[in-house]
Design a protein around this nucleic acid. Structure first.
Lengths: 158, 158
DNA sequence: CATAACGTTCACGTTAACGGCAAGGTTCTG
DNA sequence: CAGAACCTTGCCGTTAACGTGAACGTTATG
């Protein structure tokens, strides 16, 4: 379809450098099933496209920023694919009861994810609030120092 | 004789059950220095008070909800104690330059924590938004089914 | 005060998430 | 077409975060 679509496939060290992982890690993720076999060259070099890069960046983000284990990440990605399959199933039938069942199933999974994420977010927001409270406190003290106002020795009046 | 303020000290299985950890894990956390030696009984049973429970719950929350490693948690708790010591140092001097230096140092550490937490929060919010978008989508479909409205087959008139 | 129930300190085992070779093919480059 | 620079698949090593006894002391209870 798209004429430009052959963007050029990258080899493993290029992708590793690009997304900030090691080649070992990329292979390991493939071994775990987090990554599709991508594509192989004539010899058997792994070849990656832009979608693979996105997926790796996504995985890395979940791991580093959100603190998910690779098992949890695998679950999320699997759910993603189950979603795709469900869409196909959904379009493959016109039976209202079956369609509703498919949708409700999907909704259940989504809600479970939401609860888990919300708990994580709540905890982090709590810590952020605490940290900011302290920061405000410290900044207040610093301002006091700048203006020569000393709360510990308030009798500096004249 | 001892006032009522001595709330009663708990033994390790009681605390473990209470906060949802195993005894091994509690001992391990002490070994890592995440927990003070608490208190020991006549024999050498570990005895814990409410503060210990809070600390354990806090650790557990950071581990499970926020996805921090025990090393990171140790760092956070250490910073906490460094903060305490700094407050003592701060109160121990009246030299404005020294006070400012202490405050600026503390502010630096706080800001580093804040950046790290904010990145984590941002990533999780992103995922939550995505999850909710999907949820809305699914709920829309379900409503369509309930009302007999079928977007794929609009001419289902009877 | 016997004894069950609980605790203590080693110390070795396990799983996740990679690191680091070795032995050998593959691709590129002059 | 030869050598450098990559890549492949094993396979063993490592660190974090505990699990699981073993061998033995401590506390509560009928």
């Amino acid at each position: 379809m798209t004429a430009e679509s052959t963007a050029r496939l990258l080899r493993i060290t290029e992708v590793a450098d690009e997304v900030g992982l090691t080649t070992r890690t990329v292979r390991y993720y493939e071994e775990l099933g987090l990554l599709k076999p991508a594509a192989r060259s004539e010899g058997s070099y792994r070849l990656f496209d832009e979608d693979d890069l996105d997926r790796l960046r996504f995985i890395r983000g979940l791991r580093d920023d959100a603190g998910f284990s690779l098992a949890e990440i695998g679950q999320l990605l699997e759910d993603e694919e189950a979603r795709e399959r469900n869409r196909a199933r959904f379009r493959g039938t016109t039976d209202v009861r079956e369609r509703r069942s498919i949708l409700e199933d999907a909704l259940d999974r989504i809600e479970r994810q939401e609860v888990s994420l919300r708990e994580k977010a709540r905890r982090i927001d709590q810590m952020l609030a605490e940290v900011e409270r302290r920061r405000g406190h410290l900044e207040g003290h610093l301002r006091d120092l700048e203006t020569g106002h000393d709360p510990d020795h308030p009798a500096a009046t004249r």
